[in-house]
Design a protein around this nucleic acid. Structure first.
Lengths: 199, 199
DNA sequence: TTCATTTCTGGACACTATGTCTATTTTCAG
DNA sequence: CTGAAAATAGACATAGTGTCCAGAAATGAA
């Protein structure tokens, strides 16, 4: 076989243990640092020191801090999709992926809080928002004879739902996820299904 | 990391024209820059050049970029509270501040989009979230005999509502606020009042 | 085991940004 | 007009970024 230029940052599934080990160290280091300080105040050098990895090595794997963080989210997303896939076999009514979401979030709460919490910042949130938007959109199917007003209503409904869900999720996690996934999901289903009656 | 607190116009609420002029220039410069690039990529120097203000002057007014941004939000908040105060005199059912919110946002759309949009980032959002949370909380009054479960339900409802509202607002603004404030508010009131029926 | 290949490494480099300080000039209010 | 306040350029120390290299170390395969 002729040579293959395999740069560390390549898409190719890494066989080399060193690569796996290095990346995992960096992932973990970032997570643990985010628990201690504001994301913006963490430097690449800090991460490398915490991970015990050379700074030049960092850059052969990730373009910067943000990419490292994104890669952490990809892992969560992948896990969630698998979970959702299982969940969809059972239920068919309403937003049936949300219970799986809350369960998943609770299991990986440290990971989630670090990446999606208040301190986590914008990158993670918009990424999570993308994920949730896809899921919600697939629940609200489009009528073939959709008018422009319908389109507006539908999109508004999607944005409304995603915002509500994400907000509830974040609040629950930030307060230590004291309630069970079932409880928080019940609350969500009730609110999204029946609406809110003020006063 | 700023350490020294220095506010030139502290003693009397800025009488000096120079102070007012400088601050306004910096505010405007930031807003216009945020429209062009990512917030993080904007340096204090960039802002100063755009505002035609010396960099050393900048630091006599603000501790850094973030504080400049926050001060911009304070202005919006103040205006919104005044508006809300007027709106509450003509009391209707439900969340009666939201129409005022949408109207206000549309009028100051450039300001809002820059500070609250996707590119705006985390500072603005959490600030706006605080504002909305206060408003929503005041709508959902607490029963005197509230149980622990009630408290959970109430807080969940608040977080749900704020998230939905903020998400809808952001989406509307980011897409150019094509619909009228009345339309978007109707959509919100309908969704929050009646819930969402998927499929 | 040996060995070619890949990865990791520290240190050097050029670069951009931050925040503070000072001496000087400009602008303001009274 | 005048003293006080504000704005300024430029210098400074510090810190972070991203790239590059040559050598050391680990790895998978033979």
């Amino acid at each position: 076989m002729p040579k293959k230029i395999t740069k560390p940052g390549d898409r190719r599934t890494s066989i080399d243990r060193r690569v796996v080990r290095t990346r995992k160290s960096l992932q973990d280091a970032l997570i643990s640092l985010i628990h201690k300080r504001e994301y913006d105040t963490i430097s690449v050098d800090d991460i490398c020191k915490a991970a015990d990895v050379g700074r030049s090595t960092f850059y052969t794997h990730y373009a910067g801090k943000d990419e490292l963080k994104r890669s952490g989210l990809e892992i969560l997303h992948k896990e969630l999709r698998e979970r959702q896939h299982l969940a969809q076999k059972t239920e068919t009514r309403g937003f049936n992926f949300t219970l799986a979401l809350f369960e998943h979030a609770k299991e990986r709460i440290d990971h989630f809080r670090a990446l999606a919490g208040n301190r986590g910042g914008a990158i993670a949130r918009s990424e999570i928002q993308n994920i949730l938007t896809k899921l919600v959109r697939s629940e609200l199917t489009r009528r073939p004879d959709e008018t422009q007003t319908d389109a507006f209503q539908r999109e508004a409904t999607i944005q409304f739902t995603v915002g509500a869900l994400q907000s509830l999720l974040r609040w629950w996690l930030e307060n230590g996820a004291k309630q069970s996934p079932q409880e928080i999901d019940d609350a969500f289903q009730r609110l999204i299904g029946n609406g809110v009656a003020p006063k």
